[in-house]
C-alpha cells in the first residue's frame, strides 16, 4: 500500500501539475488569481467530501455544517471572545469532528437507507442555517466581518491574494493526498466494501461503525479547516454563502461530475467547473442577471448527459486507449 502511495506521489504527471501550480499563479493578475484560489477551495472541499460521499457512498449534505462551523465559529470566537484564529481553527475542527461522528453514529444505529441519509443530512444542514441566522453570537443573518488581513501569520493572516493562494494550494494538495492515502490503505478498502454491499461487509466482519465514523470525522475536520481558511480569504463571513446547503450541493456537483470515489475525480470536476462559472460570471455578470448561471446550468446538464459516469473515467478511457498498459482500477 505504502509503495502505491509513494509511486503516485512521484509520478511525473503529479510533479508537472504541481510545478505548474507553484510557478504560474503568482504571475497572474489578481482577477485570475482569485479564480485560481476559488478553484483550489472547491478542489479541497470536493476531495474532502469524496472520502464520505465517494468512497463510503454516503451522500452527506451535512457537510455545509462543517464548512460553516469552520468559517463562522472561528470568526465568532475571534471577534466576540478574542480567541486566536489558529486556536479557533482547532476548536471548530474538533466540534465538526464530533458532529460528524454523531451523524455517522445515527446512520449506523438507525441503519438509514441511502435516500433517508441524504434527506436527514439535508435537514441537519437546513437546521444549521436556521441556527446561525437566528443566533447573534455566530453573526445572525448579517454575518461577521473579520479584521483586515495584515499578513500576521501568528494571527492566521496570510496577506490576502498570493498568501491565500499558498494556503489553499497546500490544503488542496493535503486533501487530495489524504484521498490517495486512504484509497491505498485498509480503510479505503473497508469503505468501498461498505459502499458496495453493507450487509456483505458486516457478514465478513468489517466493523462498519468504526470505519463510517473514521471517514466522517476525517472528512468533517478537513472541511472545517478549509472553511476557516476560506473565510480568512473572504474576510466577510457571510452565512448565506458559507452555511447554506447550497455550498455543499455545489461541492457534490463538482465531485459527481468529476468522478466519484476516485482520488482525483472530485478535484478534476472542481478545476473544470469553478473557473467556468467564474469566467461566465465575469463576462456576463454585468449584462442580464441570471444569464451566467443559466448558461452554467445548461453546461452542467450537457456534461452529465454526455458523460453519465463522470468526466475522469471518460478521460481515463481515452488515456488507456492511447496507452493500453495503464491500469484503470476503481
Amino acid at each position: 500500500m505504502r509503495q502505491e502511495f509513494y509511486k503516485t506521489l512521484m509520478s511525473p504527471v503529479w510533479l508537472v501539475v504541481l510545478l505548474l501550480a507553484v510557478v504560474v499563479p503568482p504571475l497572474l493578475p489578481s482577477y485570475y488569481l482569485h479564480i485560481v484560489i476559488l478553484s483550489l477551495v472547491y478542489v479541497a472541499l470536493a476531495s474532502a467530501w469524496n472520502i464520505v460521499g465517494g468512497m463510503a457512498g454516503q451522500i452527506s449534505l451535512a457537510h455545509s455544517l462543517f464548512i460553516g462551523t469552520g468559517a463562522m465559529l472561528s470568526t465568532a470566537l475571534l471577534l466576540k471572545l478574542g480567541i486566536n484564529m489558529w486556536l479557533g481553527l482547532v476548536i471548530s475542527a474538533v466540534i465538526s469532528g464530533v458532529m460528524g461522528a454523531m451523524i455517522a453514529w445515527i446512520d449506523f444505529r438507525f441503519r438509514l437507507g441511502h435516500l433517508s441519509f441524504v434527506l436527514i443530512t439535508l435537514a441537519f444542514a437546513e437546521m444549521g442555517t436556521v441556527i446561525v441566522e437566528g443566533w447573534d453570537f455566530l453573526g445572525g443573518a448579517s454575518g461577521l466581518l473579520l479584521p483586515q488581513d495584515k499578513g500576521d501569520f501568528l494571527a492566521f493572516q496570510f496577506g490576502g491574494g498570493i498568501g491565500a493562494f499558498w494556503v489553499m494550494l497546500v490544503l488542496a494538495i493535503v486533501s487530495i493526498l489524504i484521498n490517495v492515502a486512504i484509497l491505498n490503505a485498509p480503510l479505503g478498502y473497508y469503505l468501498r466494501t461498505i459502499r458496495d454491499n453493507e450487509n456483505a461487509a458486516r457478514a465478513i466482519g468489517v466493523n462498519i461503525l468504526r470505519y463510517k465514523v473514521a471517514a466522517m470525522v476525517i472528512s468533517a475536520m478537513l472541511s472545517s479547516v478549509i472553511g476557516t481558511a476560506y473565510v480568512r480569504y473572504l474576510t466577510f463571513a457571510d452565512p448565506y454563502l458559507l452555511v447554506s446547503p447550497i455550498i455543499i450541493i455545489e461541492v457534490v456537483l463538482f465531485a459527481t461530475v468529476g468522478g466519484l470515489g476516485r482520488a482525483y475525480g472530485p478535484a478534476f470536476g472542481a478545476l473544470l467547473l469553478v473557473p467556468l462559472g467564474e469566467i461566465l460570471r465575469g463576462k456576463l455578470g454585468g449584462t442580464l442577471p441570471g444569464l451566467h448561471y443559466f448558461i452554467y446550468g445548461v453546461v452542467v446538464i450537457a456534461v452529465i448527459l454526455m458523460t453519465p459516469r463522470g468526466l475522469l473515467p471518460l478521460f481515463e478511457k481515452w488515456f488507456s486507449r492511447a496507452r493500453p498498459k495503464a491500469a484503470t482500477t476503481k
Partner: peptide, 24 residues
Amino acid sequence: GHQFLMVVQLTLGLSLVLQNGILM
C-alpha cells in the same frame, strides 16, 4: 440505469436553469 446521484445532479442543473431563466 445510471447512478442515482447523477440523476439528482442533472435535476440540480435543471434547477439552476429554471431559477435563472425566471430571474432573467
